[in-house]
Design a protein around this nucleic acid. Structure first.
Lengths: 210, 210
DNA sequence: GCTAAAAGCTAGCACTTATAGCTTACGCTG
DNA sequence: CAGCGTAAGCTATAAGTGCTAGCTTTTAGC
């Protein structure tokens, strides 16, 4: 029996591709092994367990997603950057549903979990987009969370066929982006027009805590 | 052996409670049976399969969630109704993560699937909230999708510990609600200030298509 | 009190993840 | 080039899934 030339990375990429094709939930050691022309137990020479393999997929996917958003927003600012980032995320989800599902289900482990770094880089891409709106420091965290919630929510609802037919989903997505853009522009000019101590100046700590 | 007095509904509620306690993914026929002081195969006398049981949980949860939002928004309007609905959803997710996960993973089946009705009622509660902003018909669909995306995204990110520490999550949630409220109020007054044919008047069909 | 439906049980199948231990391929050093 | 050691593959197997088959027992209705 010649060797297959496997390796943690090769296994992870094969599993990620398979997850995109057939869904993350249908991923099993058997189908991954079949794809690699190998028997299931052999995979354990390269990977600790199925869950750790899915964790690796999440890290890979988060990195890829962060790169895609960074690339898409490169050289853009304001509403253009926002739209580019949003579309990059949505097309990633559309093209890689299995990878995205892995991201959603992932929870960072110890402090040296590579997922932490990948997540931070991904968040920084969004932060960079927001920086164009010149919000104050406290608001930027809120805005970042709002942005992530909206985009992630939209993508995952769309992924699970959560929107009934009747109105074009692309239109709704464009509408939402514009809604956010307008709100952020308005908030940048006249903040604090609301209920009161909402943005209670939470001291000056490091950025990118979304 | 005396009989346990089981029934599809009793099994579903026990499974839902267990899902909230230990997570939907950890739900198995064995643990449900144990909770009911019965052996696993006995459950099949009342329920078709584990997946159909989870589907039942989703129907139950969607109904409960719809009721909670309806009750919370009763007698309120505008921003108050929006905030009440949002908090109702978030507290539902916080108190019933397993049920909510079942909702997220559910996909309606045939046309007579009770999940359809439950989902519609739930959507109508959100629609009723939006009606206070007097958007035109086409925009209401977009706004409904945006609202669902934001709230669902926030809740599910929070559920999976997606927000790092650093800023209070409650503050961010309040901020997001106000952001949406302000945007909707502005949109109600001066619509169509944007890119152009975004809201291309999509004829007058029945409502609640989110 | 008898009959029959239905609720519970045990046994077992097919599938999963994962481990143990064997064999064989490959790369490095003498 | 020989041989040795590491590591990659394998088979066999354990433990735990969901689910079915078929049996026993309870319980409701006549």
């Amino acid at each position: 029996m010649p060797r297959a030339g496997l390796d943690a990375d090769v296994v992870t990429r094969a599993a990620a591709a398979l997850a995109d094709e057939t869904g993350l939930v249908n991923l099993s050691m058997n189908v991954i092994a079949e794809r690699l022309s190998v028997k299931a137990p052999s995979l354990y020479k390269h990977v600790d367990s199925l869950s750790s393999l899915i964790h690796r997929i999440a890290i890979l996917a988060t990195t890829e997603l962060g790169d895609a958003i960074r690339d898409a927003t490169q050289g853009r600012a304001g509403g253009d950057a926002l739209a580019a980032a949003a579309h990059a995320l949505r097309s990633f989800v559309g093209g890689h549903p299995g990878r995205y599902a892995a991201i959603l289900g992932a929870r960072p482990g110890g402090p040296d979990d590579p997922l932490h770094a990948a997540l931070s880089r991904s968040l920084n891409s969004f932060s960079a987009v927001l920086r164009g709106y010149q919000l104050d420091l406290a608001e930027e965290t809120h805005a970042l969370r709002m942005l992530r919630s909206s985009l992630h929510g939209f993508a995952s609802l769309e992924m699970s066929d959560g929107f009934q037919i009747g109105t074009d989903v692309d239109d709704s997505f464009a509408w939402m982006i514009q809604f956010i853009d307008q709100g952020l522009r308005a908030g940048g000019e006249s903040s604090n027009s609301g209920k009161g101590d909402r943005v209670a100046a939470r001291s000056v700590t490091g950025a990118s805590r979304g």
